[in-house]
Simulated scan of single mutants.
Amino acid sequence: MAIESIVVSDLSRKPGATTVSFGLGGTWYEVDLSPEEQESLEDALEPYVKVGRKAGATPVKRRVVPETTPEERERIREWARKNGYEFAERGRIPKKVMKAYDEAHDIDRNK
């Protein structure tokens, strides 16, 4: 004995529908539509699809690390301590310290 499944449209109850997925407002929906209904939905969304952009994974923020030598980092730490900045002995030099050092020494690292 064979079992046959027939998918019917959620709108018109016509047989031969297929499942269509779409997202709106951060929520994903699925609806079973006939070929004509699917075409109607695509036509209605076309102006938005033309000007929209595909959503994907959240863009990865690139960490920007100024190019410095170990000797320069030591000079920055020494200058910062003499100028009242407190931060860890090891690890990354805080951005505010780097910015202050660069401003005091007229350095532009964005070149």
Rank of each mutant, 00 (worst) to 15 (best):
R77P: 03
A57P: 14
P70W: 01
N110A: 15
P15D: 05
S5T: 14
Y101H: 11
A2M: 02
V60N: 03
L45E: 01
S40F: 15
G23Q: 09
L11N: 06
A104V: 10
G23I: 06
N83G: 01
T68S: 00
F87Y: 04
A100Q: 11
K14D: 14
E46W: 06
R90E: 11
T18P: 07
L41N: 10
L41K: 10
E4Q: 14
A57H: 13
V64N: 07
Y101A: 01
E42A: 02
P70C: 10
E46N: 02
R63H: 10
A2Q: 07
Y48G: 00
Q38F: 12
S21T: 14
S5C: 10
E42V: 06
T18F: 11
I76D: 02
P59C: 15
E37W: 06
E30W: 05
R62A: 13
E4P: 08
S34P: 00
P94E: 13
A80Y: 02
K95H: 14
E37V: 08
A57F: 07
I6V: 10
T27D: 08
E78W: 04
K99D: 14
L24G: 05
K14V: 05
T27W: 05
V65P: 09
N110I: 12
G56D: 04
D108I: 02
L41S: 01
R92A: 08
P94D: 13
E72S: 00
V7Y: 13
H105D: 03
W28S: 09
G84W: 02
G26C: 03
D43H: 15
T19E: 13
E78Q: 05
Y29F: 15
T68M: 01
V64E: 15
A2F: 06
I3A: 07
E39F: 02
A55F: 03
R92I: 08
A2S: 14
A44I: 05
S40K: 15
P15W: 12
H105W: 03
A2V: 05
